[in-house]
Structures are given as structure tokens and as C-alpha cells.
Simulated scan of single mutants.
Amino acid sequence: MTIIKINAITVPEDGGDELARRFAARAGAVDDRPGFEGFELLKPTDDRKTWLVVTRWADDDSFQAWLNSPAFGHGHRSETPKDGEPAPRPVGVSSELWSYEIAGGSLG
């Protein structure tokens, strides 16, 4: 049964473009993980400051295996600063992980 993991990330007003850039730079990094079924980065279209990272997994064990993998740590580490430049600041102010399973719907 597919499970949905949503990382709700609160981003300052000026941080959304940087969040999107960082996700684009890692595009495809999780695609080959066992049990991974898909991913979307959802940008708010109103005045909310919470972006949603929605991933779909075959089961919770697959998600947990990725979460505990070196690939996860590598993809979520801070960027290395360039010579003479300060380290990039975190984009998110806070985040919260939500977990769901599909209870109904349509493929439309």
C-alpha cells in the first residue's frame, strides 16, 4: 500500500526561490531508491509560507531505509561554502513531517 510522506517546510518570504533551486539541484537523487514512487515540491499560491515536499513510497520500511541511508544525509547536508564566502543559511525556518495513506480518490 502506498504511503505519503509530507515535509511541511516554513520558508521566509524571500526564501522560496532558494528552496526551489536547492530541490532542482538534487532532482532525481531519490528516484532509484527501492520503494520510491514519486515526488512533488508544492509552492503556496496564497500568502502562506509553508511549502510541501510530498513523496510517495511503497511502504514505510522503504521510506525509513532512505531516511537512514547515506544518500539522505548527503542530500540534506549544508552546502559547502566557497572560499571567502559565508556558509549558506538554512532555507527553512521550521519543518514538520506528516504521514498519510491513501483512503480514497480517483486517478482522474
Rank of each mutant, 00 (worst) to 15 (best):
M1V: 02
M1I: 03
M1L: 10
T2F: 06
I3T: 06
K5V: 01
N7C: 09
A8R: 06
A8V: 01
V11E: 13
V11W: 15
V11H: 10
V11A: 14
P12V: 10
E13Y: 15
D14W: 09
D17S: 15
L19Y: 03
A20D: 13
R21D: 06
R22H: 05
F23W: 12
A24M: 15
R26H: 09
R26T: 04
A29V: 04
D31G: 11
D31V: 08
D32G: 12
R33F: 11
R33N: 12
G35D: 14
G35L: 12
G35F: 08
F36E: 08
F36K: 07
E37S: 10
E37T: 06
G38E: 11
G38P: 00
F39M: 13
F39Q: 14
F39G: 06
F39H: 13
E40N: 07
E40A: 10
L41Y: 13
L41P: 09
L41Q: 09
L42V: 03
L42Y: 09
K43L: 06
K43G: 04
P44L: 06
D46N: 15
R48I: 06
K49Q: 14
K49N: 14
T50I: 11
W51M: 03
W51T: 01
V53E: 02
V53D: 02
V54C: 11
V54G: 05
V54Y: 04
T55A: 08
T55L: 08
T55Y: 14
R56Y: 09
W57S: 03
W57R: 00
A58L: 09
A58P: 00
A58Q: 14
D60T: 01
F63D: 05
Q64L: 05
A65Y: 08
W66F: 06
W66G: 00
L67I: 00
N68R: 15
S69A: 11
S69P: 02
A71K: 14
A71F: 03
G73P: 01
G73T: 13
G73I: 05
H74S: 10
H76C: 01
R77L: 01
R77S: 13
E79H: 03
P81Y: 07
K82I: 00
E85Y: 02
P86G: 00
V91T: 10
G92P: 01
G92F: 03
V93E: 13
V93D: 12
S94P: 03
S94G: 04
E96C: 04
E96R: 05
E96H: 07
W98P: 00
Y100T: 00
E101N: 02
E101R: 02
I102N: 11
A103W: 07
G104V: 00
L107C: 03
G108Y: 08
